[in-house]
Computed example of a mutant assay.
Amino acid sequence: MAKHRRQNKTTRRIAIASTAVAMGATAISPAVAGAAEVQIPETGYTVDVPGLENVPGVQDVPGYSDYVVQNNTAGGSSAPAAPASEGQRIVEIAQSKIGAPYVYGASGPNAFDCSGFTSWVYAQVGKQIPRTSQAQASAGTPVAYNDLQPGDIVSFYGGASHVGIYIGDGKIIDALNSGTPVGVRTLDYMPFNNAVRF
């Protein structure tokens, strides 16, 4: 007669999470030979997830680089996961302030106006940019609407009276106005003026 080991709730959760991660990735991309090694939070376990690096937009998921340990190739060798781009780091920092209050003239770290928000986020990656929305819109390298990349600064209305940070998928994060906390809005929420990259 075989002995059965009783699983506690933690072991069961780990097994379920590991299976779900592995099955989900297999369903998404079953034919890919490579695999990404994903660390399951708070468990010390890792799971090889075939094709994870080929899932569109997966590297834009907040915390991606914290949990994807490495990419394994079909030959068994491995390489470290690519570091987040500077634009992606800008987006992650901006996302960390979602819900912070709008306060006219504030430039962080706990409250912001629109250009105070963009200048504070950029300062966190070591970039000093002008403080006002008009100065930000006229500095940096101009970027066409169709060439926007995460981390670009987008200005709105004639005269660039408002700015936000492009995060991809036709969305921005900004400090909109009094009574509206820092949040995500669609790019077409306001009239587009121009975009710049620093």
Rank of each mutant, 00 (worst) to 15 (best):
A2R: 12
A2P: 13
H4K: 09
R6Y: 14
Q7M: 13
T10P: 02
A15P: 06
V21Y: 08
A35M: 02
E37R: 14
V38E: 06
E42Y: 11
D48Y: 13
V49C: 15
G51N: 08
V55Y: 03
V58G: 00
V58W: 00
S65V: 08
D66G: 06
D66M: 06
V68R: 07
V68G: 05
V69F: 04
S77G: 15
S78H: 05
A79T: 09
A81T: 15
A82E: 06
A84M: 13
S85N: 03
S85G: 08
E86Y: 03
I90F: 09
I90E: 08
V91W: 13
E92N: 15
I98Y: 10
G99E: 03
A100M: 07
P109C: 04
P109F: 02
A111K: 02
F112T: 03
S115A: 09
G116P: 07
W120N: 09
A123W: 08
V125W: 06
V125N: 09
G126V: 04
G126D: 04
K127Q: 07
R131I: 14
S133G: 11
Q134V: 00
Q136G: 02
T141V: 12
P142E: 05
P142C: 03
A144D: 15
D147E: 14
G151R: 13
D152M: 02
D152N: 08
I153E: 11
I153G: 01
V154N: 06
S155Y: 03
F156Q: 13
F156L: 11
A160D: 01
V163E: 12
I165D: 07
I165G: 13
D169L: 02
K171C: 14
K171H: 12
I173Q: 06
D174S: 08
D174A: 04
N177A: 11
S178F: 05
G179V: 10
T180G: 01
T180S: 10
V182R: 03
V182Q: 06
R185Q: 15
L187I: 04
N193E: 12
N194V: 01
A195P: 00
F198A: 00
